[in-house]
Design a protein around this nucleic acid. Structure first.
Lengths: 212, 212
DNA sequence: ACCTGAACACCGTTCAAGT
DNA sequence: ACCTGAACACCGTTCAAGT
């Protein structure tokens, strides 16, 4: 298997003046706007620069390449989702297993849904941009939060294997993706939430019963 | 939301002579080879043509554009997976619900795994290529097969809502994707299969019990 | 009926010149 | 310290010319 030829993805220079901090922010915002209005395949560095009111050269002063730009935007978006899940896990400490699953899943689904349009747009670019590495990192953060939460469940004697939690996350994440991409026939958000809650509850319960 | 600007994705002309049938096949094979050896971002129509031993012009005689080429390859691959699942559903008719889930999930996982490298490579291009439309079609075919199977389960009184089956598919598909992309920490295939079987069994059982 | 490959348009990226 | 935009390289796609 090939190693991903990613190249530098980190921002090129850190803005030291207020002017450039504004520039960077406007470039990121312009990226999202272009993504949503023109679509991923028409997202051009020139177009982004235009929209941000700067020249291409300026864009490249802060981002080494197009991927890095999209990477930054993706990172920001995924970070918000992870944070929402972490907070939910914190809130649910000490509750029963079923409640925990509900809080976690609802936080995840809702975080993805607040900016459903951005989530959708970013799925398309994630693959081109080293998104999997990012998803991997965020998954790990979420998994740790979930594991910590599970340790405090009164109705759980010993924590489940980490594989089980991984599968659960991957399943919920995949289902959300499918809904957002419209692969799934359109279903009300409320139903999706409800179904994913049940899915996690029943799977976790089965795992605890040693069904695997 | 923007409509996907797909353009023609169907092959441009149907080979009428043996020579050109060979050409088309070799172009498709070359595509997979280039995808696996050079990676998605270095997959160039010129490179594919070179590898297939023809000129770019010839490639464009059969495929209107690069996307159509990748679309064809993706379609073929997904078709095989769907077929495997359909066959499994056929075999499992009349068995108990738990057995049905096992047969279905194992068929799906195994089909994805036979050519894990191709599955992986194609995930990267799917987004650029109108893959979601294709996935939607294949999902529908699989869902119908699953619904037909479920009707014959002796321990199921009334078939589950279609939403539930959709969620299950999306969850399993997403989990497999996560495993293949390496987002999930590497887990033995056998374990993945086992976990996904339990996930489907417990979720379906919960749905039947009216837990949603 | 099928194949070739030079030519064109477009996009990512750079860098010399400006403030 | 930051910005500009013409110039370059590369890739998708075409089409006049060949067999």
């Amino acid at each position: 298997m090939r190693a991903e030829a990613v190249g530098a993805l980190e921002p090129r220079k850190t803005p030291v003046q207020t002017r450039s901090a504004v520039t960077v922010k406007s470039i990121c915002e312009a990226t999202i706007q272009v993504l949503l209005s023109h679509g991923a395949e028409r997202l051009t560095t020139t177009r982004v620069a235009d929209r941000a009111g700067v020249s291409v050269g300026t864009l490249y002063q802060y981002f080494p390449n197009k991927r890095a730009l999209l990477f930054a935007v993706l990172k920001d978006h995924l970070g918000k989702v992870t944070q929402a899940v972490e907070e939910a896990c914190e809130r649910a400490r000490g509750k029963a297993l079923g409640e925990m699953m509900r809080e976690m899943v609802e936080a995840f689904v809702d975080a993805k849904m607040v900016r459903a349009d951005i989530s959708m747009g970013l799925y398309k670019v994630a693959a081109d941009v080293g998104g999997t590495a990012l998803v991997k990192r965020e998954s790990l953060r979420m998994r740790k939060a979930v594991m910590r939460m599970l340790e405090t469940a009164p109705d759980v004697e010993r924590a489940p294997e980490e594989v089980a939690v991984q599968m659960m996350q991957a399943a919920v994440g995949g289902a959300m993706r499918s809904v957002l991409e419209g692969t799934t026939v359109s279903v009300p958000v409320r139903d999706v939430r409800g179904h994913l809650v049940v899915l996690c509850q029943s799977y976790m319960a089965a795992v605890m019963r040693g069904r695997v």
